[in-house]
């Protein structure tokens, strides 16, 4: 599973990077996204909803949100 640590990007850069990662989902099958703030989480969640994807979600701490997304 390929991991994309986007915790150093704030919104909307995190969303742009996440979208690029999601574009490769059909090839990679499963990816892990790590986000660093709540605004990034909200905007990436919007993008996932738009694409019809349901991630598994884990909040590791106040500034680390982990999403596992399968095709």
């Amino acid at each position: 599973m390929k991991e994309y640590d986007l915790s150093n990007y704030v919104c909307p850069l995190s969303k742009i990077k996440a979208s690029e990662a999601l574009d490769a989902l059909s090839e990679l099958k499963t990816i892990k996204l790590i986000l660093g703030d709540i605004d990034s989480l909200k905007s990436v969640a919007q993008e996932l909803k738009k694409r019809g994807l349901k991630p598994s979600f884990n909040r590791e701490d106040e500034s680390r949100f982990v999403l596992i997304i399968a095709e």
Binding site: N8, Y9, V10, C11, P12, L13, S14, I16
Partner: peptide, 10 residues
């Protein structure tokens, strides 16, 4: 977008 480029740690 520019706000993010200026404020993102990366």
């Amino acid at each position: 977008l520019v706000n993010a480029l200026i404020h993102s740690p990366a």
